[in-house]
Amino acid sequence: MIFNKQIVKARFISRPNRFQAYVNIDGVQLMIHVPNTGRCREILIPGATVILREENNPNRKTKYDLIAAYKGTRLINIDSQIPNRIVDEALKMNKISYFRDCKNVEREKTFGNSRFDFKLLDKDNKEYYLEVKGVTFEENGVARFPDAPTERGRKHLLELVQVKKSNIGAAVLFLIQMEGIKCFKPYDEIDKKFGEYLRYADKEGVKILAYDCFLGENFIILKDEIKVCL
């Protein structure tokens, strides 16, 4: 995926709330939008180099979206709208081995009272439901999720178990929005229940997948499957 809109570098100043931040662009302080409700505390620190995407919408209060930041030399994408688009692209290009035989990819489909990011059909018309989670937290080469307690994430895992119990394929894919990752783990110290539910889902047959990304300041694509350590 290539970003067609203008990309600008800036210095991060502060984040007064989940959706807004202040940055410095060539000596000018601006308020910008943060398209990520996670904490990102280890990424968005004063003085960090951040990547902005220009949004030419006259109805917006802010001109830019903060889409990525450098954590040392590691670039991390934090745009929460990006993971599903990357996975959609990868599924249609048969880059995810577990779904390589799937011939049909649909977005935002329901099963019972639950809505999942993707519904897929394989060559034998077997259904699969897939939920995608974007991962931005990394420590010593280990990626973890979530970086803040997520009731919604726990609910999705239990719903995927119900899908599997209905003899339908179910999977969750953790898209690690950076590269150079050794393995993925649930972040038990942040959300113990999420880790418990993820291990329960695994035991019940829900497929747990993790992939990292190859990215630059104006592009991001799915890269390699990463080991999942539960």
Rank of each mutant, 00 (worst) to 15 (best):
N36V: 09
F137C: 09
D65R: 04
I7H: 01
L158H: 08
M93A: 15
T49K: 06
R85F: 10
N84M: 11
D79G: 07
M1S: 11
F145W: 03
A21F: 03
K119I: 13
I176H: 12
Y197T: 10
I67M: 03
A148Q: 15
T62H: 09
R85I: 05
R199K: 14
M1Y: 12
Y128G: 02
I13C: 08
K103G: 13
G38A: 15
L30Y: 12
S14G: 00
Y98K: 08
N125Q: 06
L215E: 11
Y64A: 02
K192T: 08
K207T: 11
G134W: 07
R199Q: 11
A48R: 11
R39S: 15
R39P: 10
A171N: 09
F174K: 06
N167F: 07
L52P: 00
I190T: 07
I45E: 15
R53W: 01
K155T: 14
P58Q: 07
E54Q: 03
L157A: 01
K223E: 07
F111I: 05
H156N: 15
L130C: 10
R107Q: 11
N84V: 14
A143K: 04
N84C: 12
V206D: 04
L75H: 12
F184E: 03
V172C: 05
L121K: 05
L222G: 06
G169P: 10
D188G: 00
T49M: 10
F145M: 04
F116E: 01
A21L: 01
K207Y: 11
P58C: 01
C213S: 06
F219V: 06
Y98L: 13
A143F: 02
C213L: 09
T49G: 10
G205E: 04
N113Q: 05
V135K: 04
Y211C: 05
E54T: 00
P186N: 13
I45P: 09
G72T: 08
M178C: 06
K95V: 04
L173E: 01
F111N: 11
K182Y: 14
N59D: 12
I168R: 06
F184P: 04
F145A: 02
E196A: 07
I168P: 02
F118G: 05
F184W: 04
I45A: 14
Y70Q: 05
K61T: 14
N17S: 06
D147I: 07
K192Y: 14
I226G: 00
R41D: 15
R107E: 14
A201K: 03
E108G: 01
T49F: 06
L209F: 02
V163A: 02
I78W: 08
K192P: 08
L75G: 12
S97C: 11
F219Q: 10
L120V: 02
G216A: 01
A201F: 05
I78S: 07
F12P: 00
L130T: 10
I43C: 03
R152Y: 15
A170V: 03
I226V: 13
I43D: 06
Y22G: 00
L209E: 07
K227D: 14
G216M: 04
R74T: 08
S80A: 15
E106K: 11
G134T: 12
V87W: 03
L91D: 02
Q162S: 13
A48W: 09
T110E: 13
Q81D: 15
I226L: 04
I96C: 03
N167T: 09
F111A: 01
